[in-house]
């Protein structure tokens, strides 16, 4: 069970969080003209890197805030976490 540092609450065990996928995906703007391929890339396609991965987590059993985490998908090491409006302090 991972130990994740919520940027609002501090270190908590993984079972208080839910995983929110790739944190680098940007939703196309509302009303934006977008090709089907680009839309499908946004909806369906995600990289599955071995190594460092920027991802989203939500502290569901805590403050309910979404935040960013930089995690190694192979070793589970979490290098850094930060609020949505911040950049990693690495």
């Amino acid at each position: 069970m991972l130990e994740i540092k919520c940027p609002y609450c501090g270190k908590r065990s993984q079972n208080e969080f839910s995983y929110g996928g790739d944190g680098t995906i940007k939703r196309p703007a509302l009303g934006e003209e977008i090709s089907t391929k680009d839309w499908d890339d946004f909806v369906y396609f995600r990289d599955n890197p071995r190594g460092k991965h920027t991802e989203l987590w939500q502290h569901v059993s805590g403050c309910r805030q979404w935040f960013k985490a930089s995690r190694d998908t192979a070793t589970h090491e979490i290098f850094s976490t930060c609020k949505m409006n911040e950049d990693f302090n690495e």
Partner: peptide
């Protein structure tokens, strides 16, 4: 609820 929070916090802050 999580869905709403996601869009408010992540997509359209």
């Amino acid at each position: 609820l999580s869905h709403l929070e996601y869009y408010l916090q992540v997509v359209w802050p």
